[in-house]
Design a protein around this nucleic acid. Structure first.
Lengths: 184, 184
DNA sequence: GCCAGTAGTTCACCCGGGCGAAACACCGCT
DNA sequence: AGCGGTGTTTCGCCCGGGTGAACTACTGGC
């Protein structure tokens, strides 16, 4: 299996597409860019420029892993948000949002309005870790923040929209928000 | 699940041991050393020295992956009354606190308010050993201590918050406090 | 062994502010 | 008009942090 190179963050959309197809990919992250949150075993990232050796090491690892994972990746195999509290096999597919604002997670999906899509993107890049309010504001309103409460309200709306697909936004008081899969 | 740091190639043996136990691990590869062949999804490597950001990105990714790969997932403590007190006799990797005050230990996490985060940091630096009251006061209130009782009260609150993630603060009379994993 | 002093624990209460949530208003689109 | 996306106002809860005071547990002196 070939490993696809993706320039990050320029080719976000491409990354999403390729993720869905289950192809392994290596994100090329220029200096100064924040590394993305990578949770998929078939994805890795590296700072560029990098030596050929380092790139090959990561590419090879991905290639081998993809072979190991292939039999496991049976398409949309598991149902969606498993409310039943058992049998957690391997949910491993990370949530992905494309640039039409469609968020796919575990076989189900939601369409998000532009603003909430932008917020979700920011949250997704730090899946499982805290995203500061300030960063969210910049992500949601690149051209200047609106009222102080706007973010709160949109987080609220986003929460409602994400619940059905099995994601939760936890607030870390006075710190920010944290997106994670809703586990039992 | 916590991620174990391993110096490569110095700690090859340790790496093998930990691999067997299924714990995620990050290999620290100094310049000039060849990166190892990594095929396990719960393993990653990074050139050192590296920025804290980069390390955290990889550690987080491993942590999330390990959750996805493990047979069992465990609750995330946040918000209020939430006891996920399960006692499994697992290997204890060191707890980690990030600068958003999120303390991760053994796959679960708690968000700590700023003051308690500072105290926890100090305690964590001496995990398993005594941290003096005085040092804690300086850690918690760099700009001057409040009332004498404040520390005690906050230790109490911290205790309650740490219980669900399996940590305990023991008092060493007239010496200070000692943070350690709650043994089963 | 008793007692007093001291160290540490726990509780109740206060204040201020962050955040949640509903309700409303505005706007562009169909 | 109806609707969905967005911004704003407002209300109120609850959390983070401080304080005082009651209560408990340890320690040393006799």
């Amino acid at each position: 299996m070939d490993v696809t190179m993706i320039r990050w963050p320029d080719e976000q959309a491409r990354r999403s597409r390729i993720s869905l197809s289950g192809e392994p990919r290596l994100l090329l992250v220029p200096d100064g860019e924040e590394p993305p949150a990578v949770v998929d075993c078939l994805e890795d990232w590296i700072r560029v420029p990098a030596t050929e050796n380092e790139v090959r090491a990561r590419v090879d690892a991905l290639a081998v892993r993809s072979l190991a994972h292939l039999p496991k990746l049976n398409g949309t195999g598991n149902g969606h948000a498993d409310g039943n509290g058992n049998g957690h096999g391997a949910p491993s597919a990370p949530p992905i949002i494309d640039d039409f604002g469609v968020l796919r997670v575990n076989g189900s999906w939601v369409a998000l309005p532009p603003l909430e899509a932008r917020l979700t993107e920011a949250l997704l890049e730090r899946l499982g870790a805290v995203t500061s309010r300030e960063l969210l504001v910049r992500a949601g309103w690149p051209a200047g923040a609106p009222g102080r409460n706007a973010l709160d309200v949109h987080v609220l709306r986003l929460r409602r929209r994400l619940t059905p697909v099995g994601l939760v936004i936890r607030t870390v008081r006075s710190r920010g928000y944290l997106l994670e899969p809703a586990l039992a």
